[in-house]
Simulated assay, not measured.
Amino acid sequence: MNLPKSLAFFAARDKVEPLRNYVYRRGIHNYEAVSVNRKTGMARLSLIGAAKGIVITSQALFEFELCVRTEDPSEDGPKGDILIKGCTEITNIHETESFVKTGRLYGEKCGLDVKFAVLQNAVQATVDVEILRAPVCGFDLKAYAKTSGFTDVIRLFEGAAKAGRRLSSVVAVGRRSHLDLCIRGSSVDSDPSQNLLYEQWECRFDACYHGTVSEEVHFFFILRQFQ
């Protein structure tokens, strides 16, 4: 079952830089078709990069709006039906230890679950991935991160990638902790008679105030056919 194509944004603000920091944003010509899990009734939205970390000194504001795209809307008519819209605050967080929390935002037609991490004494890490070489048809790329010792996986990117493409993401990391990165790639092939193998690269980076680490990763894609 597919959810109708959606228009939406999810943004956060802090007092340090009170402009909208978009975590998710889709326009009428850049909609996303998402699938609903039959068992849970839930759908997952693809985040965008590079969203910056939010500084929580006293409060942070979350704004959200999710719409269903109207098929062939008239010029004067609405572009979509609103599923959920509103804002909420996180205030007075005085925990001494970092933690991960899930909260639910309620609307008239649906709910929106949001998982976020609050990290004490954190720094901001920018993850840049540039595709130097790739097959003409490209390849399937997945990039994930784990931060500050938590097991929760942060999905940085999933999709097709070709040579020359550059991806940028931002992840907050506790000062005395580390950032785990995992990049997985597999060749693009639609032949169902072949089993696609993937190459995977993992690395751990210690948090620091300033510095740049550069790694060049080589993937060799092999198609193996089983009799």
Score class of each variant (00 low, 15 high):
D72A: 13
N92D: 13
A134Y: 02
G77I: 02
M42S: 07
L181C: 02
S74H: 14
T40D: 04
A8E: 04
L167G: 01
T102M: 11
C110E: 10
C87A: 15
Q227W: 12
C110T: 11
V213G: 01
Q59P: 00
S214W: 08
F220C: 07
P192V: 09
Q225C: 09
L45I: 10
G80E: 01
A134S: 15
K146V: 02
K52N: 06
P73R: 03
A11R: 07
Q194S: 10
L223W: 03
Y22M: 08
S169A: 10
F99R: 06
C208L: 13
K52R: 09
G185H: 00
L112K: 00
G77F: 04
A50M: 05
R44V: 09
T40Y: 05
Y24N: 14
V118L: 01
M42L: 11
G103L: 14
A207S: 08
S6Q: 06
N21A: 01
E199S: 09
L156N: 02
A12Q: 05
F116D: 03
R26I: 10
A145R: 01
I56Y: 03
R166W: 08
A51K: 07
V34D: 07
A145D: 00
V213H: 07
E65G: 01
L119H: 00
K146W: 05
I131C: 02
F64S: 00
E71Y: 08
A145W: 01
S187Q: 03
L223N: 01
F139S: 00
S46D: 09
D140W: 10
F219G: 00
I90H: 08
R224T: 09
V34Q: 08
Q124K: 10
A8C: 03
S6H: 05
D72T: 13
S46M: 10
Q225G: 14
K146L: 04
E71A: 11
T151Y: 14
A134H: 02
F150S: 01
T91A: 13
H218Y: 04
L196T: 07
R175T: 11
R13N: 06
I93D: 15
V170S: 15
Y144H: 14
A12S: 06
G53Q: 02
K39C: 05
Y209Q: 15
V118D: 00
G211C: 01
R166F: 10
Y144C: 13
Q200T: 15
T70H: 14
V16E: 14
F10A: 02
